[in-house]
Design a binder for these strands. Structure first.
Length: 422
DNA sequence: TCTGGGGTCCTAGGACCC
DNA sequence: TCTGGGGTCCTAGGACCC
């Protein structure tokens, strides 16, 4: 059996930990640039706000109902997420951290020692006690069914936070009650397609024959079908290393001049290289993209992207940034109102198995890596951007993102630690 | 005025080879 | 001028996830 532990309205829940007066109040957390609502409490949902709504479209609701709004602070949420995973790992041997607010636990063998639902309720209580974050737990023979279970646990207080789907009867009942779009792996397109074929519920899908599913859906659809029927199909191995690393941002305002774009691309490339070194990896390609504001039909639209390849895979910030800037300069078109740039690293491999190049353009690699290590150490000790590139420090700073309602880094920065007045 | 960011995997079709 | 069969690799775009 698998258990899925899902934090309820996670980003909002973290903010509420540090703002206790907000209990029972409508709360929203915004995307970067304070652009969209990305997380909201049930109270905010009840007011008609939806995940993904642009902030300016729900401004009236927010003001009329005194909705508390926060800019997203991923550092804070990631720190809290690590604490929750730590508690899980102390309680269960096999924990797979799936996303910032979800983890799977493999419960094989535990059924001989415990009542599984009670066991997981105990862990949920521990998480609530140590972190103040409420969680919902689903338990089932497959991950897809465990996810479905966690939705029932979240929506109906009667389950006391834990819903176990462990009999055929419970499985059929659960799958008949949920909408198709609540099933993990079924997105908008697949839902529309299934509706067209006269398959209205997850149960109807599960009851189709294997041959029907194989001919009407593709590989992933077949996998979901197996999981809905209690056959585990989604593999449990942890993803160790990324295949690609991306840093990109929209700008708070439109940007026209090359110097500002260069500052943004340099900053993103530098950040990508940091993430790369943090996982002891090197990349063989770097892609740069830029685009205008696609929502403005009164402005000339332009988008472009280019990729450069490194013969010797690298994690050298200077090499990666220089290459990214060369591509940006080639693609830059004057007179365009730019809205977004980004940098993607690809063809990532472990840094301990790099094939050397006889004609390497960077002859002093060991010294350069020592330099990178020194930069990382300084930025780790004195905070990000203590050491950065001159090209990043463009005076106009018009490419910087908006983050007006951001909470302090309570958990990761000693200077921003919570103050309690007695 | 204001519309996020970061990922993974699959597949069809093109380009190329013999 | 017409033309088969079998294969690989790459890539853009689609679909999904959080």
């Amino acid at each position: 059996m698998y258990a899925l532990i899902d934090c309820n309205s996670f980003f909002c829940a973290v903010e509420k930990v540090f703002h206790p007066g907000l209990s029972g109040k409508p709360v929203c957390v915004l995307s970067s640039n304070d652009g969209c609502v990305v997380a909201l409490t049930p109270e905010a949902k009840a007011l008609g706000i939806r995940r993904g709504d642009p902030v300016f479209k729900v401004k009236d609701i927010v003001e009329r109902n005194d909705v508390r709004v926060f800019s997203g602070n991923m550092r804070l949420y990631a720190a809290m997420s690590r604490r929750i995973v730590q508690i899980l790992r102390k309680s269960v041997a096999h924990v797979e951290n799936y996303s910032i607010d979800e983890s799977f636990c493999c419960l094989d063998g535990y059924e001989r020692l415990y009542d599984l639902a009670e066991f997981m309720r105990g862990i949920a209580r521990k998480i609530a006690l140590y972190t103040d974050i409420p969680v919902s737990v689903g338990i089932a023979p497959t991950k897809t069914l465990a996810k479905a279970g966690s939705l029932f646990a979240k929506r109906h207080a009667g389950y006391q936070g834990v819903c176990m789907i462990d009999t055929e009867e419970k499985r059929r009942k659960a799958l008949s009650m949920l909408p198709l779009s609540d099933i993990w792996g079924v997105g908008r397109r697949t839902r529309e397609k299934l509706n067209l074929y006269g398959v209205p519920t997850p149960l109807a899908l599960a009851d189709k024959s294997a041959s029907w599913v194989k001919s009407h859906l593709q590989k992933n659809g077949y996998c979901t079908w197996l999981e809905l029927n209690g056959v585990p199909c989604i593999d449990t191995s942890e993803v160790v290393r990324n295949q690609s690393i991306c840093t990109s941002h929209s700008f708070a305002r439109n940007v026209e001049d090359l110097a500002s774009l260069k500052a943004s691309v340099a900053s993103f490339a530098f950040s990508c290289a940091n993430k790369l070194r943090a996982q002891q990896a090197v990349a063989s390609s770097v892609t740069v993209f830029l685009c205008s504001n696609r929502f403005r039909d009164d402005q000339e639209q332009y988008e472009n992207a280019d990729t450069a390849f490194f013969i010797t895979p690298t994690s050298d910030s200077l090499e990666i940034t220089a290459s990214a800037l060369r591509m940006l300069e080639r693609m830059y078109k004057p007179g365009i109102q730019y809205k977004k740039t980004g940098v993607v690293l690809g063809r990532i491999s472990p840094s301990d198995s790099v094939q050397q190049d006889l004609f390497d353009s960077i002859p002093n690699r060991p010294q350069r890596m020592a330099l990178m290590k020194a930069i990382d150490a300084l930025n780790c000790r004195y905070g990000p951007k203590t050491v950065s590139l001159v090209v990043e420090d463009n005076q106009k700073r018009d490419w910087h993102v908006k983050s007006e309602f951001r909470s302090p880094d309570y958990l990761t920065n000693i200077n921003e630690i919570l103050t309690v007045k007695i």
